[in-house]
């Protein structure tokens, strides 16, 4: 691991000012905030990230979960994933989020991992994680060996010919279905970005993963007021029973009245280059009877644009089954 300078930020503005000196907030940044460190330190040990300066943001008092005036929920950037998943309000009103987090990583990791860190966790693509390999995301222009190589875990939606890396987060999938908003404090003030617009598709610039600019500090995430009576479910499919990233996952928030779907918010994990909200699946469902054949149709709509590669073609059908089953189970709940 390369040597680095470590400082503890006492106020957000100070942290932003220091970080704003950096040229990028994306891959290769020399100044990094550190929260739980479970992504960053891991990548530093692998020499995938080699920052010269770390700013510890754990003392910024961003660790609260509070109701908002509008009836929503404000989740601080450094709230631990474990605390978020076990929060009584979250379990009651946003249970899909709690379920998603608890199916991710391990208890120890969830005790360290934070809200903002989870939003910014990096892909598990094996080429990305090994500096001896070419990778457009890590070293723009070096190529993408995954497209013809080991791509079983990688994405089938939102890919480009430059990168097919999966966004591995479970939490983000649930947040996409909950329409979370991400609040950022930057050198030019604060702004709020819907989660759907926060992560970028790889396109020709896979090294740019989010809209964050130098100095941008995520302060909190806001969830809109809950859909009272909605049926929520997170289903994660993987090879083994625990401690593995999703091959396919689905987060669903359904409202059903008189046997028909009145509203549906659906997002998929494990298959997209970003947490994958599926308006296609949603519009296939809304106004339709909540039954198995419509659920399957919605799942087919969600995967219509999927582009499978040499090893990950099975994900298309797996994701369909995952979403169909999630919808069926949620509808029955």
């Amino acid at each position: 691991m390369k040597s680095f300078e470590f400082t503890r930020a006492d106020d957000a503005a100070g942290a932003v000012t220091i970080a704003a000196k950096e040229k990028t907030a994306q891959q290769g940044a020399n100044i990094r905030f550190i929260a739980g460190g479970t992504t960053l330190v891991d990548l530093m040990k692998l020499s995938v990230e080699t920052p010269g300066q770390l700013i510890d943001i754990n003392r910024l008092a961003l660790d609260k979960i509070e109701p908002t005036r509008g009836g929503g929920l404000k989740i601080g950037a450094t709230v631990r994933n474990a605390d978020l998943a076990n929060d009584a309000t979250v379990k009651r009103d946003y249970s899909v989020l709690s379920q998603a987090i608890l199916q991710g990583a391990s208890a120890q990791l969830r005790n360290m991992a934070t809200t903002a860190g989870n939003l910014l966790q990096r892909t598990r693509c094996v080429y990305f994680r090994d500096p001896a390999m070419p990778c457009n995301k890590r070293e723009p222009g070096s190529g993408c060996p995954a497209i013809t190589g080991h791509n079983r875990m990688l994405a089938v939606l939102g890919t480009s010919e430059q990168c097919i890396a999966t966004n591995p987060s479970d939490m983000c999938v649930a947040m996409a279905a909950l329409e979370a908003t991400i609040h950022i404090q930057g050198p030019n003030g604060s702004r709020a970005i819907p989660i759907a617009d926060f992560h970028l598709l790889p396109g020709a610039t896979p090294h740019r993963e989010t809209v964050l600019e130098p100095g941008d500090l995520i302060t909190h995430v806001e969830l809109p007021s809950p859909k009272v009576g909605s049926k929520q479910l997170y289903l994660k499919l993987r090879d083994r029973a625990s401690y593995e990233f999703a091959l396919a996952s689905a987060a669903v928030v359904l409202e059903i009245a008189n046997g028909s779907v009145t509203s549906a918010r659906i997002a998929l994990g494990g298959v997209g280059t970003k947490p994958w909200r599926s308006p296609e699946a949603e519009s296939a469902l809304v106004g339709q009877p909540a039954n198995a054949s419509n659920f399957r149709k919605a799942a087919e709509a969600a995967m219509r644009d999927a582009k499978p590669r040499s090893e990950n073609g099975f994900k298309v059908e797996l994701a369909r089954r995952c979403l169909t089953h999630a919808l069926e189970t949620a509808a029955k709940s």
């Binding site: 094996v126 001896a132 390999m133 060996p145 080991h150 090879d239 083994r240 625990s242 593995e244």
Partner: peptide
């Protein structure tokens, strides 16, 4: 689960970590 995969291009054991080489965990 278990399988060491070699990258067809460069010959590296490509899933060379305990996250990518899947072994049984307690829950299994």
């Amino acid at each position: 689960f278990e399988q060491t995969a070699y990258d067809p291009q460069n010959g590296a054991p490509i899933n060379a970590s305990l996250a990518d080489y899947i072994v049984t965990v307690n829950a299994d």
